[in-house]
Amino acid sequence: MGYQRRDINRKSNYDGKFLERLIEQGCIYYEHKCLALIEKTPEPFIVTKLGQRGTFSGRFTGRAQPDFKGTLKGGRSIAFEAKFTSKDRIKQDVVTLYQSERLTYHEAMGAVVGVVCMIGRTVAFVPWSTWKEMQSIYGRRYMTEKELKEFQVPTPGYVDFLSDYHNKEKLR
């Protein structure tokens, strides 16, 4: 049983990293088009011991911030979290309390804020105003893939998470 759980965790970790790479490709696309400069936020981590063949030990030095932050053309800020699930729903609490507080603060300062998430084959940018109000909107603290489709974004080799912003400014 332990091996099955480890394999499931490994696949979920791989899928989450894959989503982040697709988002980073979107960031590169936006930068080349002079639409935005958005970067992955490094984890607060220090190396405590170097091992052989590139291995190391380390520890986290702080709480995780939102995964991506940057500036859109025109000067508006953006901050968002990236979340993948292999389940049939994405729970609101996958965003930690600290990340939630930070995203809410960015929103209050006028930034475009949300969560890029993936359920099944659906990738979406859920505005923070919707994410934080799941309970009042859906009557529960999670979204299904069907509900996520309302916020679905194109994925032409990258996550085009700003497609709605540039087309409709829907993310306000």
Rank of each mutant, 00 (worst) to 15 (best):
M134P: 06
C117D: 01
Q65D: 14
D88V: 00
G16V: 11
T155H: 08
I8A: 05
Q52V: 14
K168C: 03
Q99R: 06
G75D: 10
T55L: 04
V95I: 06
K73I: 13
I28V: 15
L162K: 05
G114K: 00
E20N: 04
R141K: 13
V116Q: 00
I78V: 09
G139K: 07
R102T: 10
Q52F: 09
V159K: 00
Y14K: 13
E101M: 15
D160E: 12
P127E: 02
G110M: 01
K73H: 11
A79H: 13
V123E: 02
T104M: 08
T122N: 07
F161H: 02
F151R: 02
T48V: 07
A36K: 01
T41W: 07
S86G: 04
R63P: 14
R102L: 14
Q92Y: 10
Q92G: 10
R21A: 14
G51F: 02
A108N: 15
Q92H: 10
A36Q: 03
Q25L: 15
L22A: 11
F60I: 02
S163A: 09
R89V: 01
R5F: 02
S86K: 10
K146T: 12
F84C: 08
F68H: 14
D160I: 05
V116N: 01
A124H: 04
R53H: 13
S12C: 09
Y142N: 11
A36R: 02
S57P: 11
K33I: 07
T61W: 14
G62P: 01
R76Y: 03
R121I: 06
K69F: 03
I28S: 15
K33Y: 03
K33P: 06
D15C: 09
L162E: 10
L72K: 05
N9S: 07
V123Q: 01
A64R: 15
D160A: 12
V113M: 02
Y14D: 06
P42R: 00
Q92R: 05
R89F: 02
Q25R: 13
E20L: 10
K149I: 04
R172C: 03
G51D: 00
K87P: 07
D7P: 06
